[in-house]
């Protein structure tokens, strides 16, 4: 990767940005990535029990949604209703496969297109709101989607949900196979978002995430880019929904409620919302968390709430912010003129 200013990634606050002055940092990062990639590939060999595979798959799927929300947050909007798109994707995919008897590919595509269309329809209106207003309206969106899913009994089976959703293909019936399937899809999603954020489009997104006015003055169509990010995020959530439905074999409206939306938010908050790594780490941390307190659901939730409160109080830039702060100290040499 070219290290000159010509390929400066979209945001200079991204902690993974390469600095030609600290090759040790680069080597450390490459080593870390290598370890992670190898670990991911051999995970099923290391932890073959179904339980661990199950957790791993859930983490991977959750990462897709957290990364999707991250994209929206980069443009300066906090959405509390992203699970609506996930649910819509799940039910669309399920409907196409089970009622229309279409092949999984069609269900998958449907899960991409339908939430994307919804986001395209309401985005231009809803994204005009900012800050708390946007948070409120997306919260409402999430609630209404859940209500609609509950009410549309003939289509969705209502509160009972839908059982017996088939896996995408016969050979994906086993957890190991689905793990690799989820790994590939998640990696593709992450790769896509990374490519997006490090491109000129990502530059525009970061600009409008900071100040609409300056961006507009420089020719960046703020609203258009924001809707774009919103639609892409919705489609990604649809993908997560589809994969989720065909893995678990069962979906119900309760799964796609506020708690799910909150998980994406929490992943970004806990992991850190300034870089793509944040939501990934956040999901990896938060999804398995309830498993450590199995049998004490109430305590899980209290811990969950406490984690949110504590992290946002003492580490506003999340785990990634705290860690990269330390990494900078360890690895980079201070230049004259100062480094922040």
């Amino acid at each position: 990767m070219d290290n000159s200013a010509r390929d400066v990634p979209a945001t200079s606050s991204a902690p993974l940005r390469m600095r030609s002055s600290s090759t040790r940092l680069i080597l450390a990062q490459i080593a870390a990535i290598a370890v992670i990639v190898i670990g991911l590939l051999v995970w099923p060999a290391l932890f073959p029990q179904e339980f661990y595979l199950h957790i791993a798959i859930l983490v991977l799927l959750s990462i897709i949604g957290s990364v999707a929300l991250h994209l929206v947050m980069r443009t300066g909007r906090l959405s509390l209703g992203q699970a609506a798109f996930c649910g819509l994707g799940a039910y669309t995919s399920t409907f196409l496969v089970m009622k229309v008897h279409a092949p999984f590919v069609m269900g998958f595509l449907g899960a991409i297109v339908v939430p994307g269309l919804l986001a395209l329809a309401i985005g231009p209106v809803v994204l005009r709101l900012r800050g708390v207003y946007f948070a409120l309206i997306t919260f409402a969106l999430g609630e209404v989607m859940q209500l609609l899913l509950l009410d549309a009994q003939p289509l969705t089976g209502g509160a009972d949900g839908i059982f017996g959703i088939p896996p995408p293909a016969v050979f994906l019936n086993s957890p190991v196979a689905y793990y690799y399937f989820a790994l590939i899809v998640t990696a593709a999603c992450i790769g896509f978002v990374y490519a997006l954020l490090s491109s000129q489009v990502g530059r525009a997104l970061d600009a409008i995430g900071e100040t609409d006015n300056l961006a507009e003055a420089a020719g960046i169509a703020a609203s258009r880019f924001r809707v774009f990010a919103f639609v892409v995020a919705a489609s990604m959530l649809g993908i997560e929904g589809s994969l989720f439905a065909h893995y678990l074999g069962y979906i119900s409206p309760q799964v796609f409620g506020f708690n799910a939306s909150l998980l994406y938010v929490a992943a970004n908050v806990v992991g850190g919302s300034t870089s793509l790594v944040g939501p990934i780490i956040g999901s990896a941390f938060l999804v398995p968390l309830p498993e450590f307190l199995r049998g004490f659901v109430q305590y899980q939730q209290i811990l969950y709430g406490a984690v949110l409160l504590i992290v946002v109080t003492i580490a506003p830039r999340g785990l990634v912010g705290a860690i990269t702060g330390k990494m900078r100290l360890c690895f980079s040499r201070r230049k004259d003129g100062g480094d922040e």
Partner: peptide
Amino acid sequence: LQGIIATLGLAIMLQY
């Protein structure tokens, strides 16, 4: 925005 997260966390704690 951080206040939103904080009060959300609080809400969960109180509810449970």
